[in-house]
Amino acid sequence: MNHDGWLHALTGELHRRGLDPNLSRHVVAEAAAHLRDSGEAPLRVFGPPETYAAAVAESVGVPRPQTGRAWPDASAGVAGSAGTGRAAGSARTVRSSPGPIRLDVRGISKRYRRRPVLSGVDLTVRAGEIAAVVGANGAGKSTFLRICAGLISPDRGQVRVHGSLGYCPQSGGTNDYLYPDEHFVLVGAGRGLPRATARAAGREHAAALDWDPSGRTQARHLSGGTRQKLNLVMAALGEPDVLLLDEPYQGFDRGTYLDFWQQLWRWRSAGKAIVVVTHLLNQLDRVDTVLDLTPTREVSA
């Protein structure tokens, strides 16, 4: 890793750890000066950027994220039900108490060619809450989210949305030949945003994911991870009340993955109701509700 790459990575890590921007700039400038004067390799002098950033954050007293796990008992391992327990929040975001119900899902059932995929699934998400939808491959996580978004019909059940809806698909959902800014304009016009406002809002959401979308790169030339960032930003444009995110972090590197969860917690603090499909169980302690769609027989087995 060269000097610039290492310093860029350090900047990102310090940002993720919630260091004051002025202090962060100062730390990076100091490190840059030292590297320039010594001519040594940054990994040899400081070690990996995330380790050095962690040491800096600890030395200036930025609290670490909590690592304790809290899986709501009411939901764990129960197919087709929604947990109501609450988990520990992030150490870096101020949690406000949940607000009114934003998404109310009742009795959703769906079969594909006689094979039951979803059976009587309920879920309630309030403003200021994150619900994680988990389950094995083929458990119906994406189907459930697409039903919530109204993209496919269930065989039975109802979905009530109090407010507006934003949806981020697992893949696709972008136009290969348009620039990121043009995607923001396109979605923004649907939300009633003027062009400049849509572009500014898109760039702001992108910055939170450590992505600068101002370049003239068509979506088909973006990497998989960057395209998913674009997908995520499009879902959040216009500040919808309910966000449905179907494994939006596919292709994200570690830093972006952390940025993604930071952004989720910020949205939660801003009062959004969020449903995120995930199979990465290490983040379940950061959500408010877990909906496990694994069929009961698989859980008991």
Binding site: G166, Y167, G173, N175, D176, L186, V187, R191
Partner: peptide, 18 residues
């Protein structure tokens, strides 16, 4: 090509005729 993006545009406030 538009089939992939149109459902999400519909959710973003567009009507089918738009």
């Amino acid at each position: 090509a538009a089939r992939g993006i149109e459902p999400r545009l519909r959710l973003s406030g567009y009507r089918p005729h738009h």
